[in-house]
């Protein structure tokens, strides 16, 4: 693991735009996880199987789209800039299989994450990809534009000039009367 990676740099060779489907290993994980529930296996596994079969991802320049479901379809889109926090969690089974859950949250009031991205083998690379695009990672403290000061100074001088001209004119009128 390279700990000297810098913000803005990506894992080499990681291209999230190429990801459209979860990795096949996710199905095996679903099978094993459902088996752990014992007699409930069919009830737990069937929804997960359909979720796996219909799960689609799309990573574009500004956000992530995720959709799944057969009877009840769900489609979520969230923009990178609105990401509040990123949670990466792996249980023992997921670690053994090289999987992870990347949960992404926005500032909404729901208790469950807006998006749980599963079945991506390069979870850490994905997390860094998201991290580099969320707010507050790049420099956000704005430096005032260079012309601001001179512009302000010139405007002040102009205003003073206008004031003096008007005063002089008023004085002229007073003399004439």
């Amino acid at each position: 693991m390279d700990s000297s990676r810098q913000a803005g740099t990506e894992f080499p060779g990681f291209d999230p735009t190429a990801i459209t489907r979860p990795h096949r290993r996710l199905l095996s994980y679903y099978v094993l996880a459902s088996l752990l529930t014992g007699p409930l296996f069919p009830f737990v596994f069937l929804p997960l199987f359909f979720k796996y079969e219909t799960l689609r991802y799309r990573f574009d320049a500004s956000g992530i789209a995720m959709s799944w479901g057969i009877l009840f379809r769900r489609e979520t889109y969230l923009t990178y800039r609105r990401i509040q926090d990123i949670h990466l969690s792996r249980n023992l089974l997921q670690r053994w299989m090289g999987l992870a859950t990347v949960a992404v949250q926005t500032a909404s009031g729901s208790a469950t994450p807006e998006m749980s991205i599963e079945g991506i083998l390069e979870a850490e690379a994905l997390r860094d990809h998201l991290y580099n695009r969320m707010r507050g990672v790049e420099e956000t403290v704005a430096t005032p534009p260079a012309h601001a000061d001179e512009g302000g100074g010139e405007a002040l001088a102009l205003l003073q000039e206008i004031r003096d001209l008007l005063r002089a004119r008023a004085a002229d009128r007073g003399d004439a009367r």
């Binding site: 926090d85 949670h87 990466l88 969690s89 249980n91 670690r95 500032a107 969320m134 707010r135 507050g136």
Partner: peptide, 15 residues
Amino acid sequence: TGLWIIHEMTFTFEN
């Protein structure tokens, strides 16, 4: 945090 379930959360101070 965590041993069996390793959980990593990331926040930016901006948020």
